[in-house]
Design a binder for these strands. Structure first.
Lengths: 111, 111
DNA sequence: CCATTATTTAGCCATGTCGTTAATTAACGA
DNA sequence: TCGTTAATTAACGACATGGCTAAATAATGG
């Protein structure tokens, strides 16, 4: 499993539950209990999702008495957006025409 | 494993080799062979990465004689950027102050 | 000290990933 | 038809994910 920062971030986001957790945390910090209830998921399951998010630097957790409030850390999302942004010129256009591929072949032939 | 479109896209992107393949395809279509050489990876390995990318709708493949040229399909990246964009207000600010959490506790106490 | 609440850890199981090599299928071209 | 090249599939191994329940760890508050 790749462990570079961007890969960790993307892998963490590649699960609907974890994205929903981040969306929830955008509205304010929350405890594990508060998160597990709406997602109809056991506390251990949520705890593990949180560990993944923490590993990706997408949340931080602190100790507040017996609670472990989670807070959103959205900075890694900037890198994700920056990466996709590189492809912005391609978002709206169809895949390149067949011509390009044929030119490519022709170039190899002459080489 | 989640199979919704956004999760598929993010999972496909969560591997440096696959991101590098997309970056390469931005410069034009390429065959499996052309992709496997620079990545010092066996053709089967690349073939499977391509399958993942295809499953996420990030590339399309056609048959051109004995070659299977891959072309970039960047549309799904738009959705990724759109999702992260929702968090743009949080990108540059520190995690919410502790105050918010304390208010949160106080609210529960009075409720 | 004991009961309660919050959270994590430990097992379990099924399934997916990611690389390899070896074998198979598809198409070309003399 | 035969040999070559391109690409996929099959099979393997090591390991991660994602859910569960049950048990262990913290901290609170009588």
């Amino acid at each position: 499993m790749p462990s570079d920062p961007l890969s960790s971030t993307l892998a963490a986001l590649a699960h609907p539950t974890r994205r929903a957790i981040l969306a929830r945390l955008a509205a304010g910090a929350a405890t594990v209990k508060e998160l597990s209830t709406p997602f109809r998921m056991s506390a251990p399951a949520v705890s593990r999702h949180l560990r993944v998010l923490e590993g990706a630097g997408l949340i931080t957790r602190s100790r507040e008495g017996q609670w472990r409030p989670c807070r959103l850390e959205a900075a890694p999302l900037r890198e994700v957006c920056a990466w996709t942004d590189e492809f912005r010129p391609f978002w709206n256009r169809d895949s390149e025409p067949l011509d390009t591929w044929l030119q490519h072949l022709r170039k190899k032939a002459t080489a």
